[in-house]
Design a protein around this nucleic acid. Structure first.
Lengths: 145, 145
DNA sequence: TTCATTTGCGACTGAATCGGTCTGATATGC
DNA sequence: GCATATCAGACCGATTCAGTCGCAAATGAA
C-alpha cells in the first residue's frame, strides 16, 4: 500500500534518463532498459504510456527512440506517475464518481481528501530537474490540516 | 497504486470514532462496524492491529471494547496507517535492507527517498484531532526537493 | 462458578491487481 | 525492401488484498 508501482518507478527512471541525455540522440526503449537492467518489453510499455500523455515524443523507425516533450523543469513527478498509473487518489472514496458505499456515513472522507491534496502538491512540486540537481533547496508546501 | 488500503481506511474511521466517543463507554468492534456499515470481522481485525501498536487499548469481556490510548492530538494519520499496513515506503528500493536489484544503477532512488520523507511529514502532521476539527488552519511542511 | 460477551491470533479463500510477456501492426530511415 | 522502432492490445502467472472462519483467552455479570 501507498507504494509507487514499478511501472511508475521505471517511468521516472526513463524520464530522468532522457533529461540527462537530451539535445543528444533519441533514446530507444531498448537502450534505456539495458542501461538500468530492466526488461525491454516493460520499459517499452512504460514509454508508450508516457508518449500517449505527451510527456515524451516518439520517433519511429531506425535510429528512432524517445525525446522529452518539455523542459525537465516543466515535468513533475506527478505528471509521470499519473501518466502511467492514472490519477493519484489515496482512497477510492475520493474519486469523482464517489462509489464508496458508505460515503454518507464515512467521517474521514473530507480529511483524507485534504491529505490527498497535500500529497498531490508535494508530487507536483518535485520536477525532473529537481531530481537531477545535486543541491536540494527546501520548498515549503502548504498543508490544509 | 498510491492508495490507502481499505484496512487503513477503516482504521482511521475507527480511531476517529473512538476520539469522538471517548470519556464515554468503550466501543466494541461490532458497534463501530455497524455504525459505518463495515464487516464486523474485518473491523475487529483492524482494531486488533491498532491495539497491538498501543494506539488503542482493549478491554476484554462483557461490555468491553476499545478506548484511545493517547490524546487525539497525539495520534497522527501516519501512526494509524503504519500500524495497520506497516511502514510507509513509496518504493521498494527505499527499504532499509535495500533489496532492489538495480540499486547501484538506479538514479531515482535518492530523489524518491526525499519525496517519501515529505509524504511521511505530511502524514505525521495530520492528527486525529485535526481530522475531527471543523476549522482547517494551513500548516507549512518543509519539502526537500 | 457458570456463561455470555468480547478481544486475540493465525489460517484460509476468492478476487483483484500487478509485473511481465507475446503477437502483430505500423511507421521510418537506409 | 529490410532492419529498426514504436504502438496496441490480449494474455498469463504471481502476488497482494479483502474478507471469513475457528478456536483460545480474558472478563464481567448473573
Amino acid at each position: 500500500m501507498f507504494k509507487l508501482s514499478k511501472k511508475a518507478d521505471y517511468g521516472l527512471i526513463a524520464v530522468k534518463h532522457l533529461a540527462m541525455h537530451r539535445d543528444q540522440h533519441a533514446c530507444s526503449a531498448t537502450e534505456i532498459a539495458e542501461e538500468y537492467g530492466i526488461s525491454t518489453m516493460l520499459m517499452a510499455k512504460v514509454l508508450q504510456k508516457l508518449a500517449r500523455q505527451r510527456i515524451v515524443t516518439a520517433k519511429h523507425g531506425a535510429n528512432g527512440g524517445y525525446l522529452l516533450a518539455k523542459e525537465p523543469s516543466q515535468i513533475t513527478a506527478l505528471d509521470v506517475i499519473s501518466a502511467i498509473d492514472g490519477p493519484v487518489l489515496i482512497t477510492s472514496c475520493v474519486t469523482s464518481h464517489g462509489n464508496c458505499g458508505a460515503a454518507d456515513k464515512c467521517s474521514v472522507r473530507e480529511p483524507l481528501r485534504r491529505v490527498n491534496e497535500s500529497i498531490l502538491s508535494v508530487l507536483s512540486t518535485v520536477t525532473i530537474s529537481h531530481m537531477s540537481e545535486e543541491q536540494h533547496e527546501p520548498v515549503l508546501v502548504e498543508l490544509q490540516t
